[in-house]
Simulated scan of single mutants.
Amino acid sequence: MVRIGYTMMTEQAGPRDLVGHIVGAEHAGFDFSVTSDHYFPWLESQGHAPYAWSVLGAAAQATERIPLMTYVTCPTTRYHPAVVAQKAVTLQLLSQGRFRLGLGSGENLNEHVVGGGWPAAHVRLDMLKEAVEIIRALFEGRNVNHHGGHFHVENAKLWDLPDTLPPIGIAVSGDRSCELAGHLGDLLIATEPESELVSAFERHGGAGKPKVGQLPICYDPDREAAVARAHDQFRWFGGGWSVNSELPGPAGFTGATRFVRPEDVARSIPCGDDVDAVAEAVSPYVEAGFTEVALIQIGGDHQAPYLEWAQRKLLPALREL
């Protein structure tokens, strides 16, 4: 049975609201949760970008059961991997073992703010590999000195370690990232239901490990309102990783999506209150071999009715897949 998750979308709500949403998601019965880690929203109409790690710390204290996860943190540019390691074990302690550390090679949208430039994709993957190795070394609890091609660590040690370390998930988009995830990760993360990614991950050591996907939906009893909201806030989603990772800010995404029509969005994102439409969108992930799917409800002001609908109708239906 596929596990169904809830997404705390930091781009569409402020920090206090996000914590309230995750409390509601736990009450509604979602199996797990994920949290985006952004410095900018994709589009200005989303309107938010609080610090994800503060939100996660508050969420760990406000909830009791629901697992937490970054989806995803880039440990190479805006954050140094030694700092990410410290944040991850702290959150694991605060949540009493409910945290998973999702990592990826990042997007220019969020990482450009520190002024270090935006490396080519193959360089970003090299940086990610080195960062994961540093995090793993620090998780072992020893003093770490590292002088590599991209990072330096001087006599670092984590002093507060949980009994169970946070599992590390790695976001993938091609064979090389799948190889990295299979060798160094505990789970796969992807935003497309591609069986080739699952196969490559398993081929490189990921067999038997969880595979987590993500899917945006836009619940509203008024389907036209749902389509309009999805177009307003999520028309960037269809751009693909090669585009979405490169654009530097909301203005770029506005320009890149100026010809995307509401009907184009409605074809790729389930809109309205049709449970079967959401199940149909989740099914390709299940068929591709994903074990978990995190849903995004589009619209920060539309979480409460969505959570009530999910508890009554959506989650029971999806658990039959």
Rank of each mutant, 00 (worst) to 15 (best):
residue 1 M to N: 01
residue 6 Y to R: 09
residue 16 R to S: 13
residue 25 A to D: 08
residue 26 E to K: 09
residue 27 H to E: 10
residue 32 F to D: 04
residue 34 V to H: 02
residue 36 S to V: 09
residue 38 H to N: 12
residue 44 E to Y: 12
residue 45 S to L: 04
residue 45 S to P: 06
residue 49 A to G: 12
residue 54 S to I: 15
residue 60 A to I: 05
residue 63 T to E: 01
residue 63 T to R: 03
residue 63 T to A: 00
residue 71 Y to R: 06
residue 71 Y to L: 15
residue 72 V to I: 12
residue 82 A to S: 14
residue 91 L to I: 11
residue 101 L to R: 01
residue 101 L to Y: 05
residue 102 G to V: 02
residue 103 L to F: 02
residue 104 G to M: 10
residue 105 S to Y: 05
residue 106 G to E: 10
residue 107 E to M: 10
residue 120 A to W: 00
residue 122 H to S: 15
residue 132 V to A: 07
residue 135 I to E: 04
residue 136 R to V: 13
residue 136 R to L: 11
residue 137 A to S: 15
residue 143 N to P: 11
residue 143 N to S: 14
residue 151 F to N: 07
residue 156 A to Y: 06
residue 158 L to R: 10
residue 158 L to Y: 08
residue 161 L to I: 10
residue 163 D to G: 13
residue 166 P to I: 09
residue 176 R to G: 09
residue 182 G to I: 03
residue 184 L to F: 05
residue 191 T to E: 09
residue 192 E to A: 07
residue 192 E to C: 00
residue 192 E to K: 01
residue 194 E to N: 14
residue 196 E to V: 12
residue 196 E to R: 11
residue 199 S to F: 09
residue 199 S to K: 13
residue 201 F to A: 06
residue 203 R to H: 12
residue 203 R to M: 04
residue 203 R to D: 08
residue 215 L to Y: 03
residue 217 I to Q: 00
residue 221 P to G: 08
residue 221 P to F: 06
residue 232 D to Y: 00
residue 235 R to T: 03
residue 239 G to C: 05
residue 240 G to R: 06
residue 241 W to N: 13
residue 244 N to V: 15
residue 246 E to T: 11
residue 252 G to S: 11
residue 262 P to W: 02
residue 264 D to Y: 04
residue 267 R to Y: 01
residue 276 D to T: 09
residue 280 E to G: 05
residue 287 E to N: 10
residue 288 A to C: 05
residue 294 A to F: 00
residue 297 Q to T: 12
residue 300 G to K: 03
residue 305 P to T: 06
residue 306 Y to F: 15
residue 310 A to D: 04
residue 317 A to T: 10
residue 318 L to Y: 09
